[in-house]
Design a protein around this nucleic acid. Structure first.
Lengths: 336, 336
DNA sequence: CATTGAGATGGGAGCGCTCCCATGACACGA
DNA sequence: TCGTGTCATGGGAGCGCTCCCATCTCAATG
């Protein structure tokens, strides 16, 4: 039965390649998938046929039988607005995406925070659609990673799980980074050093606050949520309560930028009157006036590590719950 | 490791639903796909069975037979850095993605500018992988839309094709928007109004310059590329050449923000000495000091329109080459 | 009561692929 | 010479779905 008539797509199939190469379907499949069990001659013939016909394997057919989708979700638990406003995400996405592309895996980007989006997302994240998921910006004690693992979807997250949960993760050493920054402020002779924190339902927010406390103990603290506006509001509160403040550690560059605006409004010079340090070493840090001293996270490397760990899980090289914590680096500019 | 490939997913199949509902496979398929040719009783039974079993259709199987992937590419011809830096893209992505999600279509985001990424992208964009593509930020006379249409991949772009090419597109009325902005500057009594243009290999860049020229004719112009830095550089050049400038129309908010920085450096007060208007009405416009007067593009609506046009094409409601041009709106704040 | 037609229904065929088993070819040692 | 083991190979089976056609049901008509 030569099924050569009703091919709507016009693309050549495995079968046609086999015919052309004068071998069987199995052999072509073996060549395409890089099996060793093929004679050099057959391999050559198949490769020629593939080149001549311009054959590309049909992904749907392959997925149907292997139950593998060759695609990976990148899930961000933030509003779309926030996702695009915070440089951290952009950099992670780029890093992850470039590794994924190189491995011929498709990246499905999902941004979801609202309850209804969240529900849709949970419905979508099955073996049916993705092999694994990279989880960004998890809040609190989110049960999703657990749920996914139970469903057979491999997960890797950014940030150490907050409670007793387990799970593979990649993180920057936020606590040490914060410690370095605050230590630097102190070494520059600052006496009253305040912190503007990130959200405390996130591991990164807590760790950066811990790092601050490691150095100055119970100093003045105002709470933010990583966003620029929250940084401005926090700075405002700090100035009201602690007018003597002469050093500020903000847990994100965006918040530092917000703080900077408020400081200027209040006539405080940076760094003369108040020294200011941000976190992330993002583009924002370069574009403020003055440019921000900031803690650099190795974001590209974090992205690469995440994918590496995920692929290891997918390949079944089960290392259990792997943890990778990468060092940060203080980048000194003019704001402190 | 157990190699229990078959039925690893554990998910119910069409066949099982049919069994449960006491009907045939065909009937279940009809219900799932919303066919009218089903009796109310059968429909009810099938729906119950689906609910009980938690059945979800297998996408790969469906794709295999229908040759439809139910996924749509959103392609951005910019560097990743630029993509995340410019608010326009974020807003479009959100709009497009929400419509797509509602229609149960998957969005594949592709950011590609480098030649090698470009090549990979061309290889990927086939009927094999996507049903259609939304094209953003096309430069010059890019042949890609043509190529894709030939391959049977439907396309809709943002921005009027630049040369004789045809193609379905959605656009804001950039020229009128620019005209309004510059007209407003003039109506405020500004005498020497300059323009900072976008890239002139893009339709939007040209149209905004045209709108400027409609009002002031052959006034002072400096060229940018929509980015903040290019705006700063352009402003710098303008001040050198035309120190008497008292109004500036920048073709993007990012460039306006850059210009603002330079104006401040040069001791020019905004808006007292120089009135400044941006374009996009993005978040940037709100966060500068003073907030920017800016031209609002109906981005969400553009996103929605793009998807609508694409779906119409996919459904074969061939309207030929549809064009949708949406009005802009001048949002007056403090910078002018 | 027979006939007709419209609509509902079941299920075979087949989408393109991978998995796996039976087969064949060949070399080597007894 | 005949096993015996090794390895390349072909092709059947089947993944879960849609398409389509043959069949069935039943009310309305002559």
């Amino acid at each position: 039965m030569t099924a050569e008539r009703n091919r709507a797509s016009g693309r050549p199939t495995l079968e046609e390649v086999a015919l052309r190469a004068g071998v069987g379907r199995g052999t072509v499949s073996r060549v395409v998938n890089g099996s060793q069990q093929v004679s050099a001659r057959a391999k050559q013939a198949v490769e020629d046929a593939i080149a001549e016909l311009g054959y590309v394997p049909n992904r749907a057919a392959r997925t149907l039988v292997t139950q593998r989708t060759d695609s990976v979700a990148l899930v961000v638990f933030e509003s779309g607005e926030r996702f695009f406003a915070e440089p951290f995400f952009g950099r992670i996405v780029q890093a992850v995406s470039s590794v994924l592309v190189a491995r011929n895996l498709q990246m499905v980007l999902m941004i979801a925070q609202a309850p209804e989006e969240r529900r849709r997302l949970e419905g979508y994240l099955t073996r049916q659609h993705v092999d694994g998921a990279l989880l960004l910006s998890l809040h609190g004690d989110d049960p999703l990673p657990h749920l996914l693992e139970e469903r057979g979807v491999a997960t890797v997250r950014v940030g150490r799980p907050m409670y007793a949960e387990r799970g593979t993760f990649v993180d920057a050493d936020n606590r040490a980074g914060a410690r370095d920054a605050v230590g630097y402020l102190r070494s520059q002779g600052r006496r009253c050093i305040a912190a503007i924190t990130g959200p405390l339902d996130m591991a990164a927010g807590i760790a950066r606050l811990d790092g601050y406390r490691d150095v100055v103990g119970d100093g003045p603290v105002a709470f933010g949520d990583f966003s620029q506006d929250s940084g401005a509001a926090a700075m405002y509160r700090l100035l009201e309560q602690y007018p003597e403040v002469d050093g500020v550690f903000a847990a994100s560059d965006a918040m530092a930028a917000g703080a900077l605006r408020v400081l200027r409004q209040y006539g405080r010079r940076v760094p003369e009157d108040v020294a200011l340090i941000g976190f992330d070493d993002s583009a924002i840090a370069l574009h403020t006036e003055p440019p921000l001293t900031s803690v650099d996270q190795p974001i590209a490397e974090m992205g690469r590590e995440m994918v590496r760990l995920l692929l290891a899980k997918l390949d079944g090289d089960d290392e259990g719950d792997a943890e990778v914590v990468l060092p940060t680096r203080l980048v000194i500019r003019e704001s402190a």
